[in-house]
C-alpha cells in the first residue's frame, strides 16, 4: 500500500522538479557535449587555456571576474596547473600571465594610487573602477561579473555558448532599439516590440552586448581553428571551471565516498540480518 504511495510521490516529485515556465521566453539552449559532464567528467586543460585567452582578449574588456585570482589559473585542475609547481604562486607561467596585467595599488611611500604589474596573489583587474562607471560606459547597464556566471544562469555553460553563438538578424516585424541586439537565447518578452501576429512572438529578448566574437579574433596557440563556435565553446568551458574550480576534486572525493558507503551499507545489511535472524517480526 505504501509502495503505491511512494510511486505516486515519485511521480509528483518529477512534476514539481520540472522546469518552471516563466512569463519571459527563450529559445531552447544548444546541446553541447562538455568534457566535464557526468560523474567522471574532467575539464580539458588545453580547452581551459584557450578559454582563458578568449576571456582575456575579448570578454575582459567589459566583464570583470572579481572572484578570480591569477593564482587560481595555476592551482590543481586549473588551466595552467603544472605538477612541478604545486604552489600556484610559484608557477612561472602564471607569474608571467599576471605580470602582463596592470593592477591598481597604493604607493608605499606617497600613498598615491599607482599601477603595477600583477602577481599571482592579485585579483583579475576589473575593466571599470565601479559599477556606475561600468553602467555609464555600456548603455546604462553594467556588464555582469563572470566569476560564477556558469552557475548564475539556467543551463550554465550551454547558456553561455548559446548566447555567444546565437546572435541572428531580427525577424521582420521586430523593432530592436539602437545599441541593442536581438538574441533568441536571451530570456525576454518581445511582445511589446513585435508588430506581427501575437501568436508568433519571437522567442528571446534584446541584449545590450554586441556580438563579441568573430572568426580569428583570438589566435589559439594550438592548431584549433579560431571559429566563433570554438571560441564560444572554449570560453564557456573556462567560465564553467571558474564557477566551480573544485568540481574535479568534488567528483573524485565523491566517488571514493560513495564506494565506501555502498560497502558499508552491505556490511550493515549482513550485520542486521544476523542480529535479527531469530526474531519473528
Amino acid at each position: 500500500m505504501l509502495r503505491k504511495g511512494l510511486t505516486l510521490a515519485a511521480f509528483g516529485l518529477a512534476l514539481v522538479a520540472g522546469p518552471a515556465m516563466a512569463a519571459t521566453t527563450q529559445a531552447e539552449l544548444k546541446d553541447i557535449h562538455w568534457s566535464f559532464e557526468g560523474p567522471f567528467g574532467k575539464f580539458d586543460q588545453v580547452q581551459l587555456q584557450r578559454g582563458y585567452k578568449v576571456y582575456r582578449e575579448v570578454c575582459s574588456a567589459c566583464h570583470s571576474m572579481n572572484l578570480m585570482y591569477f593564482r587560481n589559473l595555476g592551482q590543481k585542475g586549473g588551466p595552467f596547473y603544472d605538477p612541478k609547481y604545486p604552489n600556484p604562486n610559484e608557477n612561472p607561467y602564471v607569474k608571467s600571465l599576471a605580470h602582463d596585467i596592470q593592477v591598481g595599488d597604493i604607493d608605499q611611500d606617497t600613498g598615491d594610487p599607482v599601477k603595477r604589474p600583477a602577481t599571482p596573489a592579485d585579483k583579475f583587474a576589473a575593466p571599470f573602477p565601479n559599477e556606475v562607471a561600468a553602467a555609464a560606459s555600456n548603455g546604462g547597464k553594467a556588464p555582469p561579473d563572470l566569476s560564477v556566471m556558469a552557475k548564475a544562469r539556467e543551463g550554465g555553460p550551454a547558456y553561455i555558448y548559446s548566447i555567444l553563438t546565437g546572435f541572428v538578424t531580427p525577424p521582420a516585424g521586430l523593432t530592436i532599439p539602437a545599441g541593442k541586439y536581438y538574441n533568441p537565447y536571451f530570456p525576454g518578452d518581445l511582445s511589446g516590440s513585435w508588430t506581427g501576429s501575437p501568436d508568433h512572438v519571437p522567442q528571446g529578448g534584446v541584449i545590450g552586448m554586441p556580438p563579441p566574437l568573430a572568426p580569428n579574433k583570438v589566435t589559439f596557440d594550438d592548431k584549433t581553428p579560431s571559429t566563433v563556435a570554438n571560441q564560444a565553446r572554449d570560453v564557456a568551458a573556462f567560465l564553467a571551471w571558474a564557477a566551480e574550480p573544485k568540481m574535479e576534486e568534488r567528483k573524485q572525493f565523491g566517488l571514493g565516498a560513495m564506494i565506501y558507503l555502498v560497502i558499508f551499507s552491505v556490511l550493515l545489511w549482513f550485520s542486521y540480518r544476523r542480529i535479527w535472524r531469530n526474531v519473528a517480526h
Binding site: K251, L255, M258, L261, F264, W269, Y272
Partner: peptide, 17 residues
C-alpha cells in the same frame, strides 16, 4: 544504522554530483 547508510548514499549523490 543500515537505513542511515542508505540515506547517506542519496545525500552524497546530491552533494557530489
Amino acid at each position: 544504522g543500515f537505513a542511515i547508510s542508505v540515506f547517506l548514499i542519496l545525500f552524497g549523490f546530491f552533494v557530489f554530483w
